[in-house]
Write a protein that binds this DNA or RNA. Sequence first.
DNA 1: AAACGTTATATGTGGTTACAAATAACGATA
DNA 2: TATCGTTATTTGTAACCACATATAACGTTT
Lengths: 118, 118
Amino acid sequence: MKLNYKLWLEEENEKLFGDGPADILYLVDKLGSLSKAAAEINMSYSQAWQLIDKLEKKLGFKLLEKQVGGSDGGGSTLTTKGRLLMVTFLKFRKEAVSEMSKLEKKYFTDDLINKLNS
Amino acid sequence: MKLNYKLWLEEENEKLFGDGPADILYLVDKLGSLSKAAAEINMSYSQAWQLIDKLEKKLGFKLLEKQVGGSDGGGSTLTTKGRLLMVTFLKFRKEAVSEMSKLEKKYFTDDLINKLNS
DNA sequence: AAACGTTATATGTGGTTACAAATAACGATA
DNA sequence: TATCGTTATTTGTAACCACATATAACGTTT
């Protein structure tokens, strides 16, 4: 028995930004293209593209600066706002993970698990 | 833009216990029957029953002591383990909500939101 | 035996989501 | 103009939920 959780940002009960987008944006920043980022986590490119596209429309600003064509086919880089959102979310998530871990230890102790399984 | 999250207990990637069950068990404890608890939160009785039934099978122990029939039709009360799990989860959730709120204030500041919307 | 409100159970359905596959469009370079 | 790997877009499908409906079973009280 183990604690798990999901964290995301929303507006008017609509999911806006969470783990998936944060991870993809991080990889785009690192690899320079959305298709490479998608491949890195075994997500189909079309899925990744649609995810970002929907997200940008909901947010009202661009996350990626996209270049189509060119000798290397093109690529994507993060906008200032995209990077800001991604970086902030990752920092927040890191600290949240740490806090949740503490609370898990505090409440779901071995003693409790033993009582439940006895 | 606002933070939201979900917390639950799992075993081998299978959801075990979360908000829904905790809320239902709390209401059963208060009201004395599963059907009343379900009605209280506008959930159909069958859905509530199936939720609890699945959960008990996954957990391997009973959450409710059920009485069928009788002048009042019957009712349900929490088992010791059911109450222990429910109470612990609610206490944990309360503290987690408080911690997440702190982190939200720390990271998703008005300044950040302004930058994103400018 | 009849009534009552509960627990027990099976079945169906609409909506959402995750995901894949396939194709078009693009534009710098050679 | 041909090539290349990228971005852009459409379409379809399988799986999973949440949820409702309907009915049976139960046992104490009257």
